[in-house]
């Protein structure tokens, strides 16, 4: 590694050179690793989008960029003649995830406030219950719920899909909000009160603007969790209330016995792009929300 030279001057110069080269090498190694990670994460996604826009006759064409571009696959994905009701599935997912998120936030905000700000006995236990609930296996509740919903004729209804979703979205909401709330500068509320604000004003002018980003980030995380749910929806939904994940898993193409790869990729693109855009816009906040509470 280091070069041996006769004079001291040359030696220090060489050492500096080595050090500089080492820094350069370290930073280029970082860049190479970073590029490898970015490519690994994005390439399959890119391939999905490329295939979504590719003519069905060239499904297995390995050309790595957009060729034989067409919108046909999107038409197939939304074609009700072929039995693909992606439009309806999108609305179903939007509705189910939206209501789930709203309900979870409605309950979760209060619980999280108490967990983050108040001192009371049994706090540890409540947190344990919430965490345990968020790790709960979906299969453990799906069997009794399936029987219950069959008995009361709820299978395939929206409430039958929303209620089980709450079982994992609500704990997630409480958990994430609690760690967000804990980091908020609550003493500003006191300061506002001392400066003459009423309790209502302090809440509206100080607490709300502070808490809004936390609640919004949590809402995104909750919505994505509900949107991505598959197991429960695949069992408890019917044709009319099918969610996007179920619709994509059971997709039909133009040929009956052929897997409609391009159309599935088109549907996958439609379902994923909004999430990816959302995630890229709120990248920082989402990372904070995802890792909130896991460390500290």
């Amino acid at each position: 590694m280091s070069t041996s030279t006769a004079t001291g001057d040359a030696r220090t110069a060489a050492a500096k050179g080595v050090a500089r080269r080492r820094v350069m090498w370290a930073s280029s190694r970082t860049y190479i690793s970073a590029i490898v990670i970015v490519v690994w994460c994005l390439l399959p996604f890119y391939w999905m989008v490329v295939t979504a826009f590719r003519d069905v006759g060239y499904t297995f064409d390995p050309t790595p960029f957009f060729t034989h571009v067409t919108w046909d696959n999107f038409a197939t994905a939304f074609s009700s003649e072929m039995g693909n009701h992606l439009d309806r599935a999108l609305l179903n997912s939007l509705f189910i995830s939206g209501v789930t998120t709203a309900v979870a936030l409605l309950f979760g905000v209060f619980a999280a406030y108490a967990l983050a700000r108040l001192n009371f006995r049994g706090k540890f236990m409540v947190l344990g219950v919430v965490l345990g609930a968020s790790m709960f296996p979906g299969v453990a509740i799906v069997t009794p719920l399936f029987q219950l919903f069959t008995n009361i004729n709820w299978t395939g209804t929206y409430q039958a899909l929303i209620i089980p979703n709450i079982s994992f979205v609500l704990p997630l909401t409480v958990y994430t909000l609690t760690s967000f709330f804990r980091e908020m500068p609550w003493e500003l509320e006191e300061a506002a009160r001392i400066d003459g604000c009423t309790a209502g004003e302090a809440f509206r002018k100080v607490i709300m603007p502070l808490a809004a980003p936390a609640v919004f980030t949590t809402a995104i995380l909750a919505f994505i969790a509900a949107w991505n749910e598959y197991l429960i929806a695949s069992i408890l939904s019917n044709d009319a209330t099918q969610t996007v994940t179920v619709a994509i898993a059971s997709f039909a193409g133009s040929q009956p016995h052929q897997e409609p790869y391009t159309a599935v990729m088109a549907a996958g693109t439609v379902v994923t792009i909004p999430l990816v855009v959302l995630v890229l816009i709120f990248q920082r906040k989402i990372v904070a929300g995802l890792t909130a509470g896991a460390v500290k």
Binding site: M48, N228, V244, V246, I248, L280, Q283
Partner: peptide, 23 residues
């Protein structure tokens, strides 16, 4: 880099399954 790693996370598992099934 930080944005890129969020992409696989955001894609629904059902879509991931279909995507890798195709790959």
């Amino acid at each position: 880099l930080r944005a890129a790693v969020l992409v696989p996370w955001a894609i629904p598992t059902a879509v991931t399954a279909k995507l890798w099934f195709f790959i």
